[in-house]
Amino acid sequence: MPPVRIVVWVVEGTWEGCIDAAGRSIPSGAQVALLHVTPSDVTGVAEAASAGLLGRAFPGRRPSRSFQDVADEAASELLGAAAARLGRQDAELLHRRGRVEREVIRAVAENVDLLVVARDGDHSRLGPHSLGPVTRFVVDHAPCAVLLVWPDEPPGIESIPPPPPG
């Protein structure tokens, strides 16, 4: 039987909790890949703003490194830190760019048994809205099993409001 293949989706802000939860849940023989997606609209928006200056974004004033280079470097550092935290230096590191939700689904479309995802919505109580729109799309559309974890201590059961009367 081929080894279980697991993808952990690493996102800024929630990655530490996500990696810790994954570390507790991943069987030792599993193949692990760490995935990060750089949203292409962020770099695109920053560059388009320069285009709107009608030539005032003169080449001599452009930053020495493109937004894309900075984003790529940050992504590989983040994935490296995630692999170190997980204690799995053999983990495959996947860096993609594009529409985040689409790229995550594409990355787990084939031969993936489990996707580990952190909640990134309101974490002051147990739902509703504990998922941001991008994460909600991923959970909705994932073609594999999904392990949904809290990036920090989950709120207590008392945080659920009482049911409406009647």
């Binding site: 800024e12 920053a46 703003a49 320069s50 930053p63 900075v70 984003a71 940050a74």
Partner: peptide, 23 residues
């Protein structure tokens, strides 16, 4: 112009180093 050309790249690099979401 200063915000678009000079400040935005600095903010982008700062956020990346802090490992927060840039959007």
């Amino acid at each position: 112009d200063a915000t678009v050309v000079l400040l935005t790249p600095v903010v982008f690099a700062t956020v990346a180093r802090l490992r927060l979401r840039p959007k």
